[in-house]
Simulated assay, not measured.
Amino acid sequence: MADLHAWTLQQISKREATALAATEGPWVRWADQEVIPGWDGFIMIGDDAADGEECNPVAKVNIVEDCEHITLNDPASVLRRCAADRKLIGDVVAERHILVEDCWYTCAAATEERDGGENCDDERRGGACDCGRDARVERRLRIVAEGYGWTESSDG
Rank of each mutant, 00 (worst) to 15 (best):
I36G: 02
C103E: 11
G46Y: 04
C103M: 12
E95D: 09
A50F: 08
D91I: 05
L72Y: 05
E113K: 00
Q33S: 15
W39N: 13
E54Q: 12
A31P: 02
R81M: 06
M44V: 12
D32T: 06
P75N: 07
I63Y: 07
I89K: 05
C107I: 02
K87P: 00
A94K: 07
R96D: 02
W39S: 13
A110F: 00
V35S: 12
A59K: 12
R86L: 04
C129I: 01
V100I: 10
R86T: 04
E54R: 12
L72Q: 12
L72E: 08
D102M: 09
I45T: 13
V100E: 07
D121L: 09
R29H: 10
M44D: 09
C103S: 12
I89F: 01
K60Y: 12
A110Y: 00
C67L: 15
M44L: 11
P75I: 09
K87D: 11
G116N: 01
D102A: 08
R80S: 07
E65K: 15
D130K: 02
V93S: 06
R86F: 01
T111C: 03
I43L: 14
E68P: 03
F42N: 10
Y105T: 03
E112T: 02
V92Y: 06
G126M: 07
A84R: 09
K87E: 13
V58T: 14
I36A: 10
A94G: 03
R133Y: 00
E123D: 13
W104A: 14
R29M: 10
E34N: 14
D74F: 07
R29C: 08
A84N: 06
G38N: 08
G132P: 03
V28K: 05
R29I: 11
A50H: 07
D122T: 13
N62M: 09
D74T: 10
E53D: 15
I45K: 10
P75A: 08
W39L: 12
R29T: 14
G90Y: 02
G117N: 00
V93L: 06
L99W: 00
G132A: 04
E54H: 11
P57I: 10
V58G: 09
D48A: 15
V58M: 09
I98H: 04
I70L: 15
D74R: 13
N119P: 03
V28L: 02
C103G: 04
N62I: 05
I70N: 07
A49F: 10
A128L: 09
K87N: 09
I89A: 03
D74W: 02
N56W: 13
I63T: 12
A59Q: 14
E68S: 09
A76I: 09
G52A: 08
I63V: 15
L79F: 01
C107H: 03
I70A: 12
E53Q: 15
D85M: 03
G38L: 09
W104N: 14
L79C: 04
A84Y: 02
D134E: 04
